[in-house]
C-alpha cells in the first residue's frame, strides 16, 4: 500500500498563522495525520505545545473537531468520546495527539488503562523528548545525557521505550514513525484507522528550540535519527512485527551514519564526549537487537 505524494489531499487542514515556533515538528506531524485521514477525524489534545499552537479563540488553526483537555486525561476523555460516538453510529477515527510528558509521565496511567481496555482509538505520541511548552524540562522520554533545564548536566537516566511498553499491552497495532518520513507515517495512520481497538504510534518530532538546533533542520534531524539508527521505524500489526522500509537498511550497522552527525547538530548533546558516544552506540545496538529479536518472535 504505497502512497504517492501527489495522491495526498491538498486541503488546508492547518490554518496558517499559528502560535507554533518556526520549524515546529508538531505541525508537520499533525498535518500528516490530517492528510492521512483526510480531515475526517476528531482530536483529543492534552496540555502541551499542541494546546497552544492553535492560537487564540474565537479562532483555531486546527481544521478538525478538537477538544482540549487536562494534561493527564486525554486517553480517558477519548475513551468516553469514542464510546459515545460509536453508540451514535459514527465510526470515524478518534485520535489522541499527545506529547511525551502527557504520555510517558503524567498521563501514563490513563494511557495504560485505555490501551488495556483496547479502546477504539488512534493514540499518537508526538515526541519532542522534553516538556517543551513549559520551557524544556526533562520527561520520561528525554534521552540519556540530553541537556534540559531540569537536567542541566545531562539527563542521568535512560528514556522509557514507550512503543515497547505499549506493545506489552497486547493491543493490535503499535508503530514508531518520524516526521521526516511522511509517507511511512501516513501509511501507518491509515492502516491504524482500519483496525478496531487501540492503536499506538510513537512519532519522533524533534523540536528546534528544545533540542537546540537551527529552525530549518527539523526534518534533517529527524532523518538523521533514522539514518544513524538511534530512531528505528518499526511496525507491529496484529501479531507481526516488521522493520519499516526507511529503517530496513540500517539493520546492518555498517550502513548507519556516525551518531556524531546527529548529535553535533543539537546543543542538548554538547556534553556527550567520545566515551559517552561509544556507550551511546552500544545502547543503540542493544535497542536494535531487541527489535530484531522481537521481529523474529512476532513473525
Amino acid at each position: 500500500m504505497s502512497i504517492r505524494i501527489d495522491q495526498l489531499p491538498r486541503d488546508k487542514f492547518i490554518m496558517p498563522g499559528t502560535a507554533a515556533c518556526p520549524g515546529c515538528p508538531l505541525l508537520i506531524g499533525l498535518r500528516q495525520v490530517m492528510m492521512a485521514l483526510n480531515g475526517k477525524m476528531s482530536l483529543v489534545i492534552p496540555a502541551g505545545c499542541s494546546s497552544v499552537i492553535p492560537g487564540m479563540s474565537p479562532a483555531t488553526s486546527y481544521g478538525v473537531p478538537t477538544i482540549h483537555v487536562p494534561f493527564a486525561s486525554s486517553p480517558a476523555v477519548a475513551s468516553g468520546l469514542v464510546s459515545a460516538v460509536r453508540m451514535r453510529g459514527n465510526n470515524g477515527p478518534v485520535v489522541v495527539w499527545a506529547g511525551d510528558g502527557a504520555s510517558s509521565d503524567i498521563g501514563f496511567a490513563a494511557l495504560s488503562g485505555a490501551a488495556a481496555r483496547n479502546e477504539d482509538l488512534i493514540y499518537i505520541l508526538a515526541d519532542n523528548e522534553a516538556y517543551m511548552n513549559t520551557g524544556i524540562q526533562a520527561s520520561g522520554t528525554t534521552p540519556w545525557m540530553a541537556w534540559t533545564t531540569t537536567s542541566p548536566n545531562g539527563k542521568t537516566e535512560e528514556r522509557k521505550e514507550m512503543a515497547l511498553i505499549m506493545l506489552m499491552h497486547k493491543i493490535p497495532y503499535v508503530a514508531t514513525a518520524s516526521i521526516a518520513y511522511p509517507l511511512d507515517f501516513i501509511a501507518k495512520v491509515r492502516k491504524a484507522s482500519q483496525i478496531r481497538g487501540f492503536k499506538f504510534i510513537h512519532l519522533y518530532a524533534p523540536c528546534p528550540p528544545g533540542l537546540k538546533f537551527d529552525d530549518s533542520y527539523t526534518v534533517k534531524i529527524a532523518q538523521l535519527a533514522v539514518e544513524t539508527g538511534i530512531w528505528v521505524l518499526w511496525e507491529y500489526n496484529q501479531g507481526k512485527l516488521t522493520i519499516s522500509p526507511p529503517s530496513a537498511m540500517y539493520k546492518d550497522k555498517s550502513k548507519r551514519k556516525p551518531l556524531s552527525e546527529y548529535m553535533k547538530l543539537q546543543g542538548r548533546f554538547s556534553k556527550v564526549g567520545e566515551d559517552a558516544m561509544k556507550i551511546y552506540e552500544a545502547k543503540i545496538d542493544a535497542y536494535w537487537n531487541t527489535i530484531l529479536k522481537l521481529s523474529e518472535l512476532y513473525k
Partner: peptide
C-alpha cells in the same frame, strides 16, 4: 465564547 472555529491568523500575522 467557548468554541473556536478554524481561521487563519489565530496567532496573528506571523
Amino acid at each position: 465564547y467557548l468554541l473556536s472555529r478554524p481561521a487563519p491568523g489565530s496567532a496573528g500575522a506571523t
